[in-house]
Write a protein that binds this DNA or RNA. Structure first.
Lengths: 254, 254
DNA sequence: CGTACCTTTGACGGCTGTCAAAGGAAGTGG
DNA sequence: CCACTTCCTTTGACAGCCGTCAAAGGTACG
């Protein structure tokens, strides 16, 4: 039951009763296996599902008129994908797999039902969405005020913390299916400059990245370089919101 | 009744029945007048309210260890403020007034009740939150891929469209209580460079900004410079989500 | 084994930051 | 209402980070 990465994700925000667990398991029924580079949804299309990423990595991007690509999300196993777009009449981005993996769709109308019938789950989904937004916001801050070296350090720490959150025994060396190209598109730099920065960081024994792996050699230095703020990965929820949630738990069992 | 800017804002996303209107009016009861530069909330504090901005402009920012400031949100009349932070145990930003104005707080626990008792309002609030997020996302894309001139053009258009959304008869000249300093902090540039860009835009008859006003002289040129995408300001909602909402409208009247 | 893609490296240029100083506008107190 | 202070804007000189372009070497994949 609780080997579900989605439950591990959402259970941080509310108590998951048997009824909620049943709903959440629906989030992971009927997984679909996607190949690397397969598209989950396409920019401009009507959102018809939200998705949970069971295994593998994915990302979202926009293609501009001039052909340039801009990357927005990097999704890791356990992430809910598409919750930002689901109220919109058009997907703002295209979503594609970075590595082969399993994805579980949940129809949008089921989300509406969940909002109506399980308000504490609705609040949890909103809370999870707010956490995702906090990651984007933090990356915006990173790009607003840091130079290239600091941006890279900050981004590596973002990924490291997000992985560690659902995989507590993560080592300092781990799989990172992102090419220099992807990192450059996330951070608003060129792949050429990413190459230079990574080379310098390896020479300084801070980290070593190969095509599919990365090893953090000096975690403290990464923190120093990036002014990384770990507080945002707190799973606490605002205590003002918890009173009614317990009241509803009671209701649900009636 | 419907001179409420919050109702004008949220009514885009759902049908507002009399019961919903009653709740929404609570969003605007007991307005508090704030002076320029007054703080609405402070970074690190426990969020205890969400707020609707009835009049005046506000913004959120972070102060870094080195004293640098990073600006995240620019809030206009009618915006809901603090919905992103309300599930978190700490405010990620400080919120301050850019100009004198009226703000109406709504206690966080009331939001929880609304999530439980008015699920279609909950979905509307989530939809409104997603629209705010879309603005931030679009600004991230702007900063990722545009140079200084394009960033400024894009940002002016962002504000112009957001103002026009709640004030349909907005002229090409309007109040803009943002100093060059604020614009530079929003866009990750220096105030010196903003000064240079604005000077050039005025020389090219694109726009003219004074301390408190701005006049758009060549709207089409702004679009051309910025690759601005107007779609995101669509107020349509995903039709997959509307079925249950009408069902609930029915329920609420029982 | 060949092709396509990714990474590395160097040279060069430009956009934007930094620093500094002067002029202007707004706010404050007498 | 004026004087004073503080903050904002403008302008110039200069420097540096990072983008662009190009070519070579490395790696994955069919």
């Amino acid at each position: 039951m609780d080997d579900s990465c989605v439950i591990r994700n959402l259970s941080h925000f509310t108590t998951i009763g048997p009824e909620e667990a049943r709903i959440l398991h629906e989030f992971e029924s009927e997984p679909i296996t996607f190949k690397k580079n397969a598209k989950i949804w396409r920019e401009g299309h009507l959102p018809s599902n939200i998705y949970t990423l069971h295994s593998g990595w994915a990302y979202t991007y926009q293609v501009m008129n001039n052909g340039k690509i801009r990357v927005l999300d990097i999704f890791l196993p356990g992430d809910i994908m598409g919750i930002r777009d689901v109220t919109l009449p058009h997907h703002a981005t295209t979503c594609a797999m970075l590595s082969p993996g399993d994805v579980c769709p949940l129809p949008a109308w089921r989300l509406t039902e969940i909002f109506h019938e399980h308000p504490n789950l609705a609040m949890s989904i909103h809370a999870s969405s707010a956490r995702q937004q906090a990651v984007i916001t933090d990356r915006l801050f990173n790009i607003l005020s840091n130079d290239a070296k600091s941006r890279v350090a900050h981004f590596i720490l973002e990924i490291y913390h997000r992985l560690k959150r659902v995989n507590t025994d993560l080592k300092d060396g781990f799989t990172l299916p992102l090419l220099q190209k992807h990192i450059s598109l996330v951070l608003g730099l060129t792949n050429v400059h990413i190459s230079r920065v990574l080379k310098e960081m390896e020479e300084n024994n801070i980290l070593k990245k190969t095509r599919n792996e990365i090893e953090i050699l000096d975690l403290q230095m990464l923190y120093n370089m990036s002014n990384f703020n770990t507080k945002k990965f707190s799973d606490e929820i605002n205590p003002h919101l918890t009173h009614y949630i317990s009241k509803t738990d009671h209701r649900d069992t009636l």
